[in-house]
Design a protein around this nucleic acid. Structure first.
Lengths: 233, 233
DNA sequence: CAAATTATTATGTGCAGACATATAACTCAA
DNA sequence: TTGAGTTATATGTCTGCACATAATAATTTG
């Protein structure tokens, strides 16, 4: 029994974590309710609530009204990972960042892109292909489609000077987005642009952003071999 | 101007989001302080605080004491993604789950594993190779090392019946973990176990879990081609 | 005995007020 | 001019209380 008072929500959280790790409260088990913990720790119920809610957010606890709070049976559940702004990621590693536009054209997108972005069939969209370089070495290959119907004024922008991502971030708010991580086998095109072997396994991020039901942009980022995305839990 | 009162923290959050999206508060700009917003919305400062803190957690706002709260310049910053429990992921898709142990031996691990897990050189570790199947089709290939120094009693367990992951989750609490997502080019071994073409690009998750400075286990999950990990922001 | 209703209970959220803490901004002396 | 010390201010958090809400458990009713 600790004599030190547990009054901040962080210390409540620590103590709860300690009990989970020490198996005092085992996976699947019900823990005492907020009022009991509050009186045990000598703090207000709101403080306990804050701590438990935070742990529930990270997936370590499961809470339901009336039913109470129990230790999650499968603790590894959620990881928060930082989606890097490519320029920042490269400069943070100490490399010089450079962006190079390979092509820009307005064409009717292929079927899968139409489906992803829920575009009208037959309408053209802006297609940009570019590469981001770290001290001259290809880092990530960007294949982007922009919906001109949702992004007014995009046609006049010179994307050779500013990356589409940066322009969009500054000029188009978005309300939602979805991200998919996957792997692909590099073909000739990827090998050429990323200066790697054809057939290499490449890490891919697909991202679509939306503003109130309309797709703004769909971008596929294909990273050079060896790219790792890291997070701690 | 809305006449409807904004009193719940969710509605405060919605209103703040609306203003960010409508560019009333632009990226990088300072927004009114909590007290002002509270009096504007007709609610308590604590309610505004809850809403703004939540938005800061998701990376849309940046807050600093005394300096105030400003709209983040790079809104796409953090994504929370669910780390799947493989059994659940497979059964959730409506497939039958099966786990098959391919090999189990106690050997001195290779250098990279020793480095990752910070093991003593020359000490043996338990090496398990297994595959998880969805209705008989290989879904993910699991290559795992377990530190017997940190996991007492692991040597007597029959991992042909229960997957190592499930046994560990139930029997070993962990305090920290780190996860890396990457891609690899499949070799002969992966092709054989996952029943795919050699040379295919494969999605990989590396995970190490720790209990108070000692590595419990390091596992590499290599997913069959076409695997996608999805999240929304 | 099953279905519908009511009571109970644990979490969820709101409020006002107070104090804590970080830090930007200012003041003043060397 | 610069560095150290001070002040003001916005966010961070705690408290005690109240009521809302969801969901289980108990009870009544047809």
């Amino acid at each position: 029994m600790t004599d030190t008072l547990i009054r901040s929500w962080q210390s409540v959280q620590e103590e709860v974590l300690r009990r989970i790790n020490a198996r005092i409260w085992k996976p699947g088990e019900l823990i005492p309710n907020e009022a009991e913990l509050a009186s045990e720790f000598g703090c207000a119920r709101a403080t306990v609530n804050r701590a438990l809610q935070n742990l529930a957010d990270t997936g370590l606890l499961e809470r339901r009204r009336k039913a109470g709070t129990r230790v999650a049976t499968h603790p590894i559940r959620k990881a928060t990972l930082d989606i890097p702004i490519i320029r920042n990621e490269i400069t943070a590693k100490g490399f010089a960042y450079r962006y190079s536009l390979i092509s820009s054209e307005k064409i009717v997108p292929p079927r899968d892109v139409i489906a992803r972005m829920q575009l009208e069939r037959g309408n053209k969209a802006l297609h940009l292909v570019a590469v981001h370089l770290a001290t001259g070495v290809p880092y990530v290959f960007e294949d982007r489609w922009i919906n001109p119907g949702a992004v007014s004024g995009v046609e006049g922008i010179d994307f050779t000077r500013q990356s589409a991502n940066e322009w969009l971030v500054e000029n188009m708010p978005f309300t939602a987005g979805d991200i998919t991580f996957t792997a692909m086998t590099g073909g000739r095109r990827e090998a050429e642009i990323l200066a790697c072997e054809p057939g290499a396994g490449l890490f891919v991020i697909d991202r679509t952003t939306w503003t109130k039901d309309r797709a703004i942009t769909f971008v596929r980022l294909v990273f050079a071999p060896g790219y790792r995305m890291h997070t701690v839990i």
